Amino acid sequence: MIGTGSVEMAQRQPRRLPPELRGLFDDGGRDRVLSVDLPPGEVVWPDPTYVRWPSNRRAAFWLSDDPVTAELWTALRREHPRSGLWPVLMEDSVQPWSVGQVAPDAATEIDHFQVGAFMEEVWSDWIERATEDQMEMLDPYGPHCPGPADPAPVRCDPDDLADRYAAVLAERGMPLGLAAVTRGADALAVMGWQGAIHHNEWNVPLAAVVRSWEDRYAARLVGMGFNTLELTVAAPPATLQHALHIAAEHWTFCPDAIIQGAGSLIDYAHQIIDKPTWSFWWD
């Protein structure tokens, strides 16, 4: 179960974003304001060798120096509509972003990808190399990619659920990242996260998948690590049939969750029925 309870943080009058945060936006953070006091931190610049668009080089995101409270995450999540900054709890210790090994992309790149096409490409590539035993893992779909699953009914407030899960993750002692994005899913691309690079060299298509989950399953990006993602899901599957279809999506998004985890789509589907969080890790 996800813990409940939150503490309201004292807020000051909204003020224009400080210069280092304004620099995260294409338009210089025009009209963006924040009424939450931030802890010490600094912007993360990508290593020049990782920059895809040298002509538009700027900081990828802001990162706190130390772990933060869940209350701060919640306060910043509530401020997102007017600040334009989405909070992400970041796995602590020595991470690629600590030394600037991030490869940010513009959120507009995500617009060019469709979930169905991405699934079909991953599925087809796997089928070409799969053994008979490996094919059994994809039962009942086998060589035929089922495409994206149907939406599910929303069962609770998606933002409240995300706040409660942030309280769980914050107990691990996680710093906070702030990404200049319109929606949380875009942070995967804009922050230059590289956690799934051994599965997909470009993480922009994965951001497109998470965008779609925001729409179909009321998902929220809450945390990320070197090779992990933590999402809340306010509209999880309620039946095995629906969960199995979603499991096929998860397999194309993060094969290791099934290959090195549950072992088959069917076993994995049983694990995500009614589950309000989706956790992914890549080898």
Rank of each mutant, 00 (worst) to 15 (best):
Ala243Glu: 13
Arg155His: 10
Arg77Lys: 13
Gly192Leu: 00
Leu161Gln: 05
Ala152His: 05
Met1Arg: 15
Thr69Ser: 10
Thr131Gly: 15
Trp193Met: 09
Trp45Pro: 00
Gly41Lys: 00
Asp256Lys: 06
Asp133His: 08
Gly84His: 08
Ala207Gly: 07
Asp31Ala: 12
Pro39Phe: 03
Ser35Val: 02
Met137Ala: 07
Thr131Asn: 14
His112Thr: 11
Thr228Gln: 11
Ile2Phe: 04
Leu34Arg: 04
Asp256Glu: 13
Glu71Val: 04
Arg15Val: 09
Ile272Arg: 10
Thr49Phe: 07
Thr182Ser: 14
Leu24Ser: 03
Val168Gly: 00
Ala106Ile: 05
Cys156Lys: 08
Pro48Leu: 09
His270Pro: 01
Ala162Glu: 10
His80Gly: 00
Asp256Trp: 06
Arg12Glu: 15
Met9Arg: 13
Leu244Phe: 00
Arg216Ile: 00
Leu24Trp: 05
Gly225Trp: 10
Val7Arg: 13
Ala208Lys: 10
Ala208Tyr: 03
Ala75Val: 04
Glu71Asp: 15
Leu265Thr: 08
Pro40Thr: 07
Cys145Phe: 12
His250Gln: 15
Val7Asn: 09
Leu240Trp: 08
Val181Thr: 05
Tyr141Leu: 13
Val102Arg: 06
Pro46Tyr: 02
Pro14Met: 04
Asp125Leu: 12
Asp111Lys: 12
Leu240Lys: 08
Trp45Gln: 02
Gln11Gly: 10
Pro151Met: 00
Pro67Val: 11
Val68Phe: 07
Gly173Phe: 00
Asp65Arg: 11
Asp283Ile: 06
His112Asp: 14
Glu171Asn: 06
Leu24Val: 02
Asp65Ile: 00
Glu91Val: 01
Ile272Gly: 10
Arg52Ser: 08
Thr182Ala: 15
Thr277Arg: 12
Ala180Met: 04
Leu24Cys: 01
His250Ile: 15
Pro175His: 05
Ser279Gly: 11
Val210Trp: 08
Ser6Thr: 06
Val181Ser: 02
Met135Leu: 15
Glu79Asp: 12
Met174His: 06
Asn200Pro: 00
Gly177Lys: 03
Gly177Trp: 01
Pro151Ile: 00
Pro87Lys: 01
Met135Tyr: 05
Leu176His: 00
Arg78Gln: 13
Tyr141Asn: 13
Cys156Gln: 13
Ala234Lys: 01
Gly195Val: 02
Gly28Ser: 08
Asp92Met: 08
Trp202Ser: 12
Ser83Tyr: 05
Glu91Gln: 13
Ala235Ile: 01
Asp139His: 13
Arg16Thr: 15
